[in-house]
Amino acid sequence: MRTSPTNPVARIVKLSAALALAVGSLVLASCNSTPAPKDTRAADEAAIRAASKAWSDAAQAKDVDKAVSFYATDGIQLTDKGPLVDDAATLHAGWQKMLALPGPGLSLQTSKVEVAKSGDVAYEYGAYDFAVADSAGKITDQKGKYVVIWKKQTDGTWKAAVDINNTDAPPPPAPAPAAKPAAHNSAKRRKHH
């Protein structure tokens, strides 16, 4: 079939090309105005480090309510020498007991924070120092490590979704009267999975 300026087919082709260009550029323009989500990782890391510092300060101030406020509503704690705690009341009770112990108490020092590109999930790990006074007022520092999974909440704040910690020092040998085989004891100490 021949095409000429008066040919209806040629008219359709021309018109559709023009329209497609117009609509297509509009679509592309709106596409560019909603680019990939912004990379907020640097600001998120700063916010998490600030939250971790505030959490440590709350512990030092023995402020139980403030300390537990850093958990997400569905936040859990994998308690050292204890169970997985997934309810607010038990979480509160655990912190209350710990912060009631005499001495300066718990402080946290962030080692590393890394945020997912999407800015919804992050992790932090660091070192803790738990300074407890005995009845004579002598303070003993217990040192350990912690890892926190942080999640950005709908209001933009970061809260702890999962919290775990453990001690650096191996547990003291069992106070069993009979000496246990050395191999058994050293194996017992290695609880690392």
């Binding site: 999930v121 058994h184 609880k191």
Partner: peptide
């Protein structure tokens, strides 16, 4: 739990260690 961007994820669970004594 996996981040929306699928670059970072976390997992937690329970372990069991069996030790056969002497």
């Amino acid at each position: 739990g996996v981040a929306k961007s699928s670059d970072i994820a976390y997992e937690y669970g329970a372990y069991t260690m069996d030790v056969v004594g002497k």
